[in-house]
Design a protein around this nucleic acid. Structure first.
Length: 153
DNA sequence: GCCAACGTTGGC
DNA sequence: GCCAACGTTGGC
């Protein structure tokens, strides 16, 4: 499948992913059950991931990554020093998973949500839905291909 | 910083 | 298990 992952660039930007090398970055800190279920059950190796910068000056799609490690226990849930620490997690029983995401490409420009909204083919894109707060969401092949086309347009 | 939308919590 | 109150997300 194909995905959009949201990230705050102050925490993990497309450049950080580019600098992480083939092992990728640890995609940690997902603390929503619906997003967790996608990560755990549906995200597969080599799935392509559009990277979306949120809560920043230039919100939008900034590049492409791919999944290089399947879901495993999110290490941050066990780390009291982490903002993502989850006190109820134990080594035997933990709810939160991480995957690793490696760099594929950085877009020539930030593709804003306003630009995406101009394309009727993207009307059903979850990212554009009102009130959507999922940080991990599926994307159709058509939607992905159109975004990649827009990057080169 | 505003605020709509959604998720979570907790009393009952 | 209902639902009001509260907290968080995240675009604008």
């Amino acid at each position: 499948m194909n995905w959009i992952f949201k990230t705050e660039p102050s925490e993990c930007s497309i450049d950080d992913i580019a600098n992480a090398g083939p092992a990728g970055v640890v995609w940690e800190g997902v603390r929503n059950y619906q997003a967790r279920n996608f990560l755990r059950d549906d995200v597969k190796l080599d799935d392509l991931v559009l990277i979306h910068h949120s809560s920043c000056a230039e919100v939008g799609l900034v590049g492409l990554g791919k999944v290089v490690k399947l879901a495993y226990a999110d290490p941050s849930q066990f780390d009291p020093a982490s903002p993502y620490y989850f006190a109820k997690s134990s080594p035997e029983n933990w709810p939160w998973v991480a995957v690793n995401v490696a760099f594929v490409e950085k877009f020539h420009k930030v593709i804003s949500m306003a630009e995406l909204r101009q394309h009727p083919q993207l009307a059903e894109m979850l990212l554009l839905k009102k009130g959507n707060r999922l940080s991990v969401m599926p994307l159709t092949k058509i939607e992905l291909e159109l975004v990649l086309f827009l990057n080169n347009a």
